[in-house]
Computed example of a mutant assay.
Amino acid sequence: MYIGWIVHRLSVGDHMIINVSDICYIYPDGHEAIRNVSFSVQPGECIGVIGANGAGKSTLLKLLVGLYMPQAGEIIINNMRLSKQTMRDIRRTIGFTFQQADDQLFMPTVYDDVAFALRNEGMDEEEVKQRVIHALTSVGAIHVKDRPPYRLSEGEKRLVTFATILAMKPNILLMDEPTAALDPKARRALIQLVRSLPHTKIVTTHDLDFVLECCERTIVLADGTIVYDGQTEAILTNEPFLHEHHLELPLMFQRKK
C-alpha cells in the first residue's frame, strides 16, 4: 500500500479544515462502499479523488456533505462533528456540485437558480441581486442570467452550477465529475475557473488530465479504501500502479510514450 506523504507530514497541532476518521458506509443492499477511510485536508488544498467505477468516489463526497451519514467513524468539518444537529451549519460552509448539472438547475431562469438558496436563507433581495450578479460574472456566465437552464449548453450549465454555490460564499468546494460531458472548450474554461478559485477543493473524477492540472494531491480509492494518498504527479506517472487499479496514464503522458 502507498502511504500518503501529505497526511503523514502534518503534526497534530496543524489546523485541519476537514478531518475524516475511520468512516464506513454500507448501502441497504449490503454493499460496503466505504471502508475505514481516514484523511485530513488543510485549508486551500485542492485534492483529486480517483478510482475505477464503484471505488466509492461519489459516496465519499456525499458523506462529506451529509447526504449520507457514516455508520462508523466521524467527519469533522470546520471544527464541527458532522451530525444531524450540525448538518445545517456545515452545509453553509460547503458548496457541492452534482455529477449531473440538471440535478441542480430547476428554476425558470438562471438568475432564479443562483438566487434560490440565498432567498431560502431569507436574504434581503438587494443582497441577493449583488451576490447573483457577482457569482455569474466570476464564472463567466453573466450573459445567460435571464435564460432558462434547459436551453444552456452542458458547459454553460456547469458554470451556472458553480455560480449557485459560489453565491453562498462557502470555503469548501466538493465537485463530483465536473468535466463530464463537456466539450474541449468548455472543459478548458472549467479548468481555468477551478484553478482560479482560492477555496479548499475536493474533486472526484475520471479525468486524470484535469487532476494533473488542478490538484497537487491525489487520493486513490479501490473497493472503498484508500490505496494511495500523496503527490499527484508521482502517482499519475506510475503506469503499473494505475493499471493495477483499472486506471490509465493521463493523455498528456500517453502522447509522450
Results as ranks from 00 to 15, higher is better:
Ile26Glu: 14
Glu156Tyr: 02
His206Glu: 06
Val49Leu: 10
Ser40Gln: 12
Ile172Asp: 00
Leu136Ile: 06
Ser21Gly: 10
Thr137Gly: 09
Glu244His: 14
Pro198Glu: 05
Asp209Thr: 13
Thr93Phe: 00
Leu173Asn: 10
Arg255Pro: 10
Arg188Ala: 10
Arg255Lys: 15
Asn36Gly: 09
Asn238Ile: 12
Val227Phe: 07
Thr225Ser: 15
Val7Cys: 09
Leu249Cys: 02
Gly140Asn: 10
Leu159Trp: 09
Ser138Asn: 07
His245Gly: 06
Gln104Glu: 04
Leu67Met: 12
Gly13Lys: 13
Glu244Ala: 14
Ile142Leu: 15
Thr205Tyr: 05
Lys84Ala: 12
Leu82Ala: 11
Pro198Trp: 12
Ala72Gly: 10
Lys185Gly: 01
Leu60Tyr: 05
His243Phe: 12
Ser11Thr: 11
Pro178Asp: 13
Asn36Pro: 05
Asn238Thr: 05
Arg195Asp: 07
Gly44Met: 05
His243Val: 07
Asn78Met: 11
Glu127Trp: 11
Val65Asp: 09
Leu193Gly: 07
Asn19Gln: 13
Gly230Lys: 10
His134Ser: 13
Thr218Pro: 11
Leu193Asn: 02
Ser138Ala: 10
Thr218Phe: 14
Ser58Ile: 07
Gly30Ile: 02
Arg158Pro: 08
Tyr150His: 15
Gly73Glu: 12
Pro178Cys: 12
Ile50Gln: 00
Val7Ala: 13
Thr232Phe: 08
Leu193Met: 06
Met80Val: 01
Pro148His: 14
Lys145Asp: 01
Val220Ile: 14
Thr232His: 07
Ala52Val: 04
Gly4Glu: 05
Ser11Cys: 12
Ile219Thr: 10
Pro43Asn: 04
Ile50Ser: 00
Gly4Ser: 12
Pro149Thr: 02
His8Ile: 01
Gly54Asp: 00
Ala52Gln: 06
Asp89Thr: 05
Ile142Trp: 01
Thr161Asn: 08
Lys157Gln: 01
Pro43Ala: 05
Gly30Glu: 09
Arg187Glu: 03
Ile17Ser: 01
Ile18Asp: 09
Leu193Ser: 04
His206Thr: 02
Ile202Val: 04
Leu173Glu: 11
Thr109Met: 02
Met80Thr: 00
Phe106Thr: 05
Ile47Arg: 10
Val139Arg: 03
Leu67Lys: 02
Cys214Asn: 07
Gly122Ser: 10
Val37Pro: 02
Gly155Pro: 13
Tyr228Phe: 15
Phe241His: 08
Ile202Phe: 09
Gln71Met: 14
Phe116Lys: 07
Tyr2Glu: 13
Ala135Ile: 01
Thr179Ile: 06
His143Cys: 13
Gly66Leu: 05
Leu190Asn: 03
Gly73Trp: 08
Phe162Ala: 07
Leu242Tyr: 00
Val128Asn: 14
Gly44Ala: 06
Lys257Cys: 07
Val132Trp: 06
His243Asn: 12
Pro148Tyr: 14
Val65Phe: 13
Leu247Ile: 00
Met175Glu: 02
Thr93Tyr: 09
Pro250Gly: 00
Pro170Gln: 05
